[in-house]
């Protein structure tokens, strides 16, 4: 086929520039996609190499010891890893049932659409509040609000290790509660999307068999939306583990490890935020090591989410 443009007939051949443009577009978007992946790898690589001295010095004992002494150059991040996991767990414990409940309520036809839409919008707006605002609110509103409750827990249930220390204001439980509010909109919005995506025919089938609304929701709709909901929870967990500002402001930033959620603590991200400015030498390397661990944790969560979503995704 000739490449020169035809003269009289309808030009069915594509012009050279159109072909070039097509190619260029593929290359450009391809470069963007690869570029993003490359940035991730570059960050991981840099964090990894900077962490190398600390990895060589402390090895796995970094994960199992809690001493963080700048003067002696001995570092262990157990307190922070523990704090990250515990605050995230508290956050999920609160946000998952509430988030799924909210999603269920808003995906059914309990509310007329003109009330439902604003409510959906408000909940999603929770995700738009900057985390430093959450932190500020945590310090001035949530901590005073929670303190009597913490004292009550300690005086009445102090024999349970979970509540065995007297609350001093900031603490792990405050951080967990702040996190739960921050991840609630993620869980609610994604769960609602997956519930709404369950085909109406399936719902009708359940009703047609004589299922009540609750039986339909719990035996048909929720299982059908399961993968989407778990995906949302995992995404929220990733957010909770990495969240820095609000947590740093309310957790107390103490390097002590305690079974009590009323005590102060710290998380990996709050450790990084608190120490990077004055750090040098092995301390920087240790911070990088801690960052690498956080990186790994979120990576594991995201991979798990992906596996669960694929494994249980709705086949229709």
């Amino acid at each position: 086929m000739a490449t020169s443009p035809s003269q009289t007939a309808m030009p069915t051949e594509r012009s050279q520039s159109s072909r070039v443009l097509d190619k260029a577009f593929v290359w450009l978007t391809g470069a963007f996609a690869i570029g993003v992946g490359f940035v991730l790898l570059a960050i991981a690589f840099r964090v990894g190499t900077d962490a190398l001295p600390a990895i060589q010095k402390f090895g796995l004992s970094f994960l199992t010891t809690s001493r963080w002494s700048v003067n002696d150059e001995v570092f262990g991040a157990l307190t922070q890893i523990y704090g990250t996991l515990v605050t995230s767990f508290i956050a999920l414990l609160i946000a998952v049932p509430i988030g799924i409940g909210v999603a269920l309520f808003l995906s059914e036809d309990y509310l007329p659409p003109r009330i439902k839409q604003p409510v959906v919008f408000l909940i999603e707006l929770l995700a738009a509040i900057p985390s430093v605002v959450y932190g500020l609110w945590g310090i001035f509103v949530l901590i005073p609000l929670l303190k009597p409750f913490g004292i009550w827990l300690n005086t009445n249930f102090g024999w349970i290790p979970l509540f065995s220390t007297a609350p001093s204001g900031p603490g792990i439980y405050v951080a967990g509660i702040i996190l739960s509010i921050m991840i609630l909109p993620i869980i609610a919005a994604i769960s609602r999307d997956s519930l709404v995506a369950v085909p109406a025919e399936i719902r009708q089938a359940a009703y047609g068999l004589g299922a009540t609304r609750w039986e339909t929701i719990f035996q048909v709709i929720l299982p059908a939306a399961f993968s989407g909901i778990v995906g949302g929870i995992m995404l929220a967990l990733g957010r909770a583990m990495g969240e820095t500002m609000a947590v740093t402001m309310v957790i107390g930033n103490s390097n002590s490890i305690s079974p009590s959620i009323l005590s102060q603590g710290s998380t990996v991200s709050s450790l990084l935020a608190n120490q990077f400015a004055e750090a040098g030498g092995l301390q920087v390397s240790s911070l990088m090591y801690a960052a690498l661990i956080l990186f790994g944790l979120t990576l594991v969560v995201n991979v798990l989410a992906e596996i669960i979503v694929r494994r249980f995704s709705l086949k229709l």
């Binding site: 085909p199 399936i202 009708q204 089938a205 359940a206 048909v220 059908a224 086949k315």
Partner: peptide, 8 residues
């Protein structure tokens, strides 16, 4: 129903 609608 019109459209086959087995549960997943």
């Amino acid at each position: 129903f019109q459209k086959p609608n087995p549960f997943p």
